[in-house]
Simulated scan of single mutants.
Amino acid sequence: MKFKYVTMIAAVCSWSLLSAVPASAAEATKVNLITGPFGTGSYVLGNALEQLSKKYSKTVEISSSETPGLVFNARKMDKEADLKKLTMMSFTTGINYLTTEGIKPFKKKYPSAKLISNYNLGSVWLATFDPEIRTAQDLIGKTIALGRPPQILWTVEPEQIINTGWGLKGKINVERLGTKQAAQALLDGSVDAAIIGGYADPISGTFSPSPQTVELVGSGKTLYHIPWGQEAVQKVIDNGISIKTLTVPAGAVAGMDKPTEVFFDAIAWVAYPEMDEQSAYEVTKLIIDQVEGFKEYHALGKLMSKGSLAHGWKAEDIHPGALRAYQEAGLIP
């Protein structure tokens, strides 16, 4: 009897000690992240976020996984509503606009996602080897190559600027080839201009050219850059697409002899409002605290800085938990 009594007391004490341990200290909240195809910046930086959470966070553990792409991510989250509670996804403001408006490739309207953190700011424009082509008007009657039809940054948004911003719909022959194929077409001389670009940190002014841009620069030919222009970009913004104006500094890319007015689309980790505020807060705080660590995983991580993490977003479009983390860090008023 005495042995049983002692055993019971020990059990009660053990239970009391465990119940006194805060849940966050006992077990980290597990948050899923669906990224993009293997080898892309979205995939690599998503994996980096997973590793950083395992190294430095006691409150949140992130598990990233590959997906076919960012359009797929929105469709998956829509079909599996329970995912929204503890799942983030790689996304862009451009895709978010298409989902909320029910525009191709989406067949219905989706609710708006909320920012957790930017991880890249993608920017594109047109370039040519023809010194006679320097403005939008010079492209009338010419052929240009863009990305594939579903690509938001490399095709959908540039076409919006051509059609709405420049008002040149039907006056320029547009071929939707793919980013690599567009560069090759320009090298072959089968098109007059092609889409190029890269990724920017607007805070430091640092710019990292995309692979096909590097290929064109390395061709030995003189590359001429055609700006979209602030007025044209603003017309598209006024039409509802959430892009922002961006000035790429002179010298950022070979042949860019003066600042070039283009646009950027925020490539970000987002979540739906169904994710609880504390989980979003912990993830965002981790990103803010460890932002310098991303450069150890991918060259694009060098473009991440505290000031760029919420750049271009209105407070109402940021997840409440993430907003709290940014405000605590003094990054948003």
Rank of each mutant, 00 (worst) to 15 (best):
M1R: 15
K2A: 15
K4A: 14
Y5W: 15
T7Y: 11
M8L: 15
L17I: 15
S19L: 14
S19I: 08
P22D: 12
A26I: 09
N32P: 01
L33I: 11
G36Q: 13
P37H: 10
G39Y: 00
G39Q: 05
S42M: 03
Y43S: 11
V44P: 07
G46I: 11
N47S: 12
K54Q: 09
S57W: 05
K58W: 08
V60L: 00
I62P: 05
S64K: 11
T67S: 08
R75Q: 15
R75S: 13
D82S: 15
K84C: 01
K85Y: 07
L86D: 14
L86T: 13
M89T: 07
L98S: 11
E101Y: 02
G102D: 00
I103E: 14
P105T: 08
P105Y: 07
F106M: 08
F106K: 05
K108D: 00
K108G: 01
Y110D: 12
A113H: 10
L115T: 10
S117I: 05
Y119A: 04
Y119C: 05
G122Y: 02
L126W: 06
E132H: 09
L139K: 12
I140G: 04
G141M: 06
Q151C: 09
I152V: 14
I152A: 12
W154C: 11
W154Q: 11
Q160F: 13
I162S: 08
I162W: 07
G165D: 06
K169I: 08
K169C: 02
K171T: 07
N173S: 13
L177E: 00
Q181I: 05
G189N: 02
G189I: 09
S190K: 15
V191F: 10
D192E: 07
G197D: 02
G198W: 01
A200W: 00
P202G: 05
I203E: 13
S204Y: 02
G205R: 04
S208M: 13
P211T: 12
Q212M: 06
Q212T: 10
Q212S: 11
V214Q: 05
E215D: 13
G218D: 14
S219Y: 02
K221W: 03
I226V: 06
Q230W: 08
E231G: 03
A232V: 09
Q234G: 08
D238V: 04
G240T: 13
T245C: 12
V248P: 01
G255R: 06
G255V: 01
K258T: 14
F264C: 11
D265S: 12
W269C: 03
V270S: 04
V270W: 00
Y281N: 10
E282K: 14
V283W: 04
L286I: 07
I288A: 11
I288H: 10
V291S: 08
E292G: 09
Y297S: 01
G301W: 02
L303C: 03
S305V: 01
S308W: 03
L309V: 08
L309I: 09
G312E: 13
K314N: 14
D317W: 11
P320A: 04
P320F: 04
A322C: 05
L323V: 04
Y326G: 09
E328A: 14
I332C: 02
I332S: 02
I332F: 08
